[in-house]
Design a protein around this nucleic acid. Structure first.
Lengths: 107, 107
DNA sequence: CGTGTAAGGAATTCTGACACG
DNA sequence: CGTGTAAGGAATTCTGACACG
């Protein structure tokens, strides 16, 4: 079954639960989205929906921020990882959709 | 890691997503709770929170209802299953909390 | 019995902005 | 740069009840 993985990645969690689980403020969570570090989905009415893996990701981000890493750097690390995934053949949808173009601009 | 299981059982999903995923109405979902077929948690403000396994359970319930099985019967089947789990040593919290007393009354 | 619905209220989330630094 | 906050509005969820059957 591929189900466990899908539970981990399925975006069904409101921001309220996310802040509770991560200890971050909603302001922080939204800001990291603005900085392109996380990619929640939206309900038709505009509510953000997160997955468990988003929550894990946020905890990683929080650690780095505490260590003084800037969002810009964290973002570059993400790009690096995604690149490896591409190479290994694991396509990531948000990467394809929102980052592939940019990669050829960012120098 | 025990994490996959915890994702499955962690109650973090609002009723809106549940109705969307199961195709049931909120009225139905709440009714099945009233009938003691599912056991969502509550936020401090009273919002119901469901897990992925709750959603799976709801789909099972929906099937049985369609087959004309009454909630009362579905509930008894649940009790039966829980009993087996007890025997095999897998304690289930809601069973312990809300049903163990009852078992000695229900004839 | 199982489910639909209108009703009123309370809690959640959203965006854009000002603030500090 | 990263985060707090007050502001106003829109969408969500909650409960108890009436309805049908």
């Amino acid at each position: 079954m591929v189900d466990n993985q899908s539970y981990r990645d399925k975006k069904v969690i409101n921001i309220g639960i996310v802040t509770e689980m991560t200890g971050l403020s909603d302001r922080q969570v939204r800001y990291y989205e603005d900085r392109k570090l996380i990619f929640p989905e939206r309900t038709s009415s505009g509510f953000r929906k997160y997955s468990f893996s988003d929550i894990e990701r946020l905890m990683e981000i929080a650690e780095q921020i505490e260590d003084g890493v800037q969002t810009h750097e964290i973002r570059k690390d993400l790009a690096k990882r995604e690149k490896h995934k591409m190479i290994s053949g694991q396509i990531n949808s948000h990467f394809n959709l929102s980052q592939s173009r940019e990669r050829y601009h960012v120098k």
